[in-house]
């Protein structure tokens, strides 16, 4: 009986400590983002490469997925609105649900699956190959050189790609509103303008930035936890990915609460 409570207590303490560590670590990285010294030529090169790998390389596939998935989603939602006689809520559904909620979520899921997993593995491999140690030997700050560019890349990529996704969805919305409701572009634009709230857009953009920050920070953190054995790589990668998805859920819930308050 005693051991059960001990185990439970240990687990809770471990969880809270890990959470607190992550927050402290995030704080440390966040402060470095605003330090001028961080932006060395080496760091800028890494940042450039990271943006290239995360956003530019993925762009054609991302646009394709956005068009296909977004059109499908908009078509279904508009059809449902028409069937249930909720045409009056068309603008609010389009802006509040699809543009500010689903588009960031779709983007973050795609980027997590493609880039966060890669970052996690890359860090673990660097740790196993003692590259991290070599960097430290040459007084190259790991946070400045490896973490900050990846985290900034996460923020930039998610914000830009999510905005692109939203624009793609709005454009496909024009087509579907014409097909399903017989709505002209003028009416569609007017409805969107009336339904749009700047605060909602700002919250959505801020949420994207938070997503970007954590979906890169958590994999790096877990990647750096790898030991010097190759077998530790899959363990830290799977742990990192589970935690990334948990973070996505927590951020989504928090953003919902922000909207409610």
């Amino acid at each position: 009986m005693m051991s059960f409570w001990e185990n439970l207590g240990r687990r809770v303490i471990q969880m809270l400590t890990a959470f607190a560590d992550t927050i402290v670590f995030a704080g440390k990285v966040f402060i470095r983002i605003f330090r001028r010294k961080t932006y060395s030529s080496a760091m800028r090169e890494v940042l450039l490469n990271q943006i290239y790998f995360t956003s530019v390389q993925i762009l054609p596939v991302f646009l394709m997925v956005s068009i296909l998935f977004g059109s499908l989603l908009i078509g279904i939602v508009f059809q449902l609105l028409k069937e249930f006689g909720l045409t009056g809520f068309f603008g609010h559904v389009l802006m509040g649900l699809i543009v500010t909620e689903l588009s960031p979520l779709l983007t973050v899921l795609l980027i997590t699956l493609r880039s966060a997993a890669a970052i996690n593995t890359e860090m673990a491999v660097m740790k196993v190959n003692r590259e991290i140690k070599t960097l430290e030997m040459f007084r190259i700050d790991v946070i400045d050189y490896l973490l900050v560019p990846r985290v900034i890349n996460g923020i930039i990529s998610i914000v830009l790609l999510s905005s692109l996704c939203s624009i793609v969805l709005l454009v496909s919305g024009t087509l579907f509103s014409w097909l399903i409701f017989g709505m002209s572009i003028d009416v569609y634009t007017n409805i969107l303008l009336n339904a749009t709230n700047f605060s909602d857009i700002l919250i959505a953009l801020f949420k994207c930035a938070i997503y970007g920050f954590f979906i890169t920070l958590i994999p790096i953190r877990f990647g750096l936890r790898a030991s010097h054995e190759l077998t530790s790589i899959p363990i830290v990668v799977s742990q990192g990915m589970v935690n990334v998805f948990a973070a996505i859920l927590i951020i989504e819930v928090l953003s919902l609460l922000t909207k409610l308050l």
Partner: peptide
């Protein structure tokens, strides 16, 4: 090393 410590262009 040069890029990082001396901020030398890449």
């Amino acid at each position: 090393i040069k890029e990082y410590h001396e901020d030398m262009p890449r």
